[in-house]
């Protein structure tokens, strides 16, 4: 999905046939690296709802999410020249940057306040959200990953989302869920393997 750019630019193997935003995003990031404010402006317009949504999901607080979003684009402005396709597709790079900044803030806040994903919130997150104003590729990507997530067992899904949105370690998740550490590791490993299988090219998500 996101990786189309790599194939188009010959920077990686073709792995999906889905359309992606990364040809535009790559150019914007290059523009930002040259100090072009207009490029950052375009990148913001296309991605800020996703970036802010991730920060809000992780932090559960609008003011904190706003600060994180500001930090993310400020950081993009400063480090765009360091971006390389080895760090993932441009959209992946931006999303991981947003996750990282939000988790930093969460840890600095010293309170996780139960923001780790519960089974209920997984269901909540998987409904709606992307509207007519969002780019088509986001809608398609979201639809596909959400479908892929439903192919996981509830326990696998919960652990993967706790890890991604909560930034919890294996042992923290094991402690909170009262599960053996080995079970947690195995479920995440098998869950990610299943996700990869579902998301890879040529696989139809049920």
């Amino acid at each position: 999905m996101w990786m189309l750019l790599m194939s188009v630019l010959g920077m990686g193997p073709r792995r999906t046939a889905s359309p992606g935003p990364d040809d535009d995003w790559y150019q914007w990031i290059e523009g930002v690296a040259r100090g072009e404010q207009q490029a950052l402006s375009k990148l913001y317009d296309q991605s800020s709802r996703v970036v802010y949504g991730i920060a809000l999901r992780i932090l559960g607080d609008e003011a904190d999410a706003e600060e994180v979003t500001l930090d993310v684009y400020n950081q993009v402005w400063r480090i765009a020249r360091d971006y390389s396709p080895d760090r993932g597709a441009p959209s992946s790079w931006l999303i991981m940057l947003a996750r990282s900044r939000a988790l930093d803030r969460l840890r600095a806040r010293g309170r996780r306040r139960g923001r780790e994903t519960t089974l209920d919130s997984v269901g909540e997150a998987a409904t709606g959200g992307y509207g007519p104003d969002d780019a088509a590729y986001f809608k398609l990507a979201a639809e596909k990953i959400r479908s892929a997530m439903t192919s996981l067992s509830p326990e696998q899904r919960q652990l993967i989302e706790m890890s991604f949105f909560g930034g919890l370690s294996h042992s923290e998740m094991a402690e909170r869920l009262g599960q053996p550490l080995g079970t947690v590791k195995t479920r995440i490993r098998s869950g990610m393997s299943r996700l990869r299988e579902m998301m890879s090219a040529g696989k139809e998500v049920q």
Binding site: G53, R57, G88, S91, S92, A142, I145, F165
Partner: peptide, 8 residues
């Protein structure tokens, strides 16, 4: 990174 898109 795509896991992020499960959030709204």
């Amino acid at each position: 990174a795509q896991i992020a898109l499960t959030s709204n």
